[in-house]
Amino acid sequence: MKKPIDALVKVGDLPLGLCGAPGSTVAFKTGDWRSVRPVLDKEKCIYCGFCYYYCPDGVYQDMAPEKYYKADLDYCKGCGICAHECPKKAITMTLEEV
């Protein structure tokens, strides 16, 4: 098969300095990359914030005044670092249903 045209923008159409609108990652929802999701057992949670601090994508939100953190599943890629770091083993990585 012949290689299709793989350039996305014409030379003359690129913005000066290649600057772009900020915040494009907000629109880029990576939640569908996930094969497992973190499920929190609130009974075990001590509200230490390890999940919040360790999450590489920053998807955890502080739910204060309620005492727990919640993963935003629009962006969570299911890496499992939160579950691994949780000192109380309160997070379980659970298979996504297909």
Partner: peptide, 22 residues
């Protein structure tokens, strides 16, 4: 706000360099 110094993958890099040369 705006972003400066963005990634230019294979689909952008050639055109970006050419635009600078132009």
């Amino acid at each position: 706000p705006m972003s400066l110094g963005l990634l230019g993958g294979p689909e952008y890099y050639t055109e970006s360099r050419k635009a600078t040369d132009d």
